[in-house]
Write a protein that binds this DNA or RNA. Structure first.
Length: 309
DNA sequence: ACCCAGGCATTGG
DNA sequence: CCAATGCATGGG
């Protein structure tokens, strides 16, 4: 068993805890929360490196203004290119290369955002490993309470994700599309998924496998083109497409119109609680362009923290 | 007991 | 165009 280390230099400012708590990882512990940064002080994920599984552990060093991540990669006979690939995946998962300064500059003109930037200073926007992973996670979470979604996701990952034990702790990787496509709808229904969602997941897995180069090829398209391709998939509407633009493709100006929670928090923080329609919210959102993904991310953080309640 | 929670496609008025 | 429906679970 090899153990290698690498260093990542995130673009400052970078607050590790605020960033990593938005990125789930998968361990064998049914009741475990998505992350437990506060206990371990580290972000961990089991990664696919070709056919191998490797555990990546990222620990913060330095400060918010001068950040460093110490990344440990554990696995069987790892080659230097594999270690490098793992390091790149961790950097992507934690949004290490994102430069917040343009957004922070624009936020000074918006009192609400200016406040949130202070509160969540250095919070980057975690990215999914792939479009396939982001889509699958989005479908799983649609309409469900967060706790229910977590149970179902844990079942999916424990059933179809690769796993490996490190230091007595069993870790899971996110399932590959082959595993989902190879399951029957009834197999998936056993994981408490509805028939419809089971069908959606299979369709997405097949699209990932059947598209030359995979769905990550959407990287090359404009926002509007990518939305068109994504919404052509069954189970993927406008909301999910925007979500994927943010969480997988890293686009800075996506906006999930139709998000109930977002509508509520904007109504609370900007309109004194007066209800908004989707049309009003869409129009209002342009004040944040071209940083709407970032504005949304910080508003959701406010929502989770109970700001304005 | 009941209602809701960060949707979506489908179906029926 | 609008409303109901299925998918599951805990908390208010």
């Amino acid at each position: 068993m090899d153990k290698c280390t690498a260093i990542i230099h995130p673009a400052p400012p970078f607050n590790f805890a605020l960033t990593a708590e938005n990125q789930p990882y998968f361990r064998k512990d049914a009741s475990a929360p998505d992350t437990d940064i506060e206990n371990t002080g580290a972000y961990q994920r089991l990664l696919h490196l070709g056919d191998k599984l490797a555990l990546a552990t990222a620990r913060p060093e330095g400060s918010i203004a001068s950040p460093k991540l110490a990344v440990t990669i554990e696995g069987e006979s790892l080659s230097p290119p594999e270690v490098d690939a793992a390091r790149e995946q961790v950097a992507r998962l934690l949004g290490a290369d994102q430069d917040l300064t343009a957004f922070y500059g624009a936020a000074t003109a918006d009192p609400v955002l200016a406040d949130l930037v202070q509160t969540f200073y250095g919070m980057h926007l975690p990215r999914a490993i792939s479009v396939f992973e982001a889509l699958t996670q989005a479908i799983l979470g649609q309409q469900l309470a967060a706790t229910v979604a977590r149970i179902i996701r844990a079942l999916l990952i424990e059933t179809y994700g690769g796993s490996k034990t490190f230091n007595g702790q069993l870790h899971y990787a996110f399932p590959r599309p082959e595993a989902i496509a190879g399951a029957s709808v009834d197999d998936l229904r056993a994981l408490k998924l509805s028939r419809r969602k089971a069908e959606y997941l299979q369709g997405i897995a097949r699209a990932e496998l059947d598209t030359p180069g995979g769905l990550d090829g959407l990287e090359r398209l404009t926002d509007a083109e990518a939305v068109r391709e994504l919404t052509a998939l069954r189970g993927v509407g406008k909301w999910t497409a925007q979500w994927v633009l943010v969480r997988a493709l890293g686009r800075p100006d996506a906006f999930p119109v139709g998000d109930l929670a977002l509508r509520r928090i904007v109504s609370r923080l900007y309109f004194g609680g007066q209800p908004l329609t989707d049309e009003q919210l869409e129009e209002f959102s342009h004040r944040w362009s071209p940083h709407r993904s970032w504005a949304t991310h910080y508003l959701f953080a406010a929502l989770r923290a109970g700001v304005g309640e």
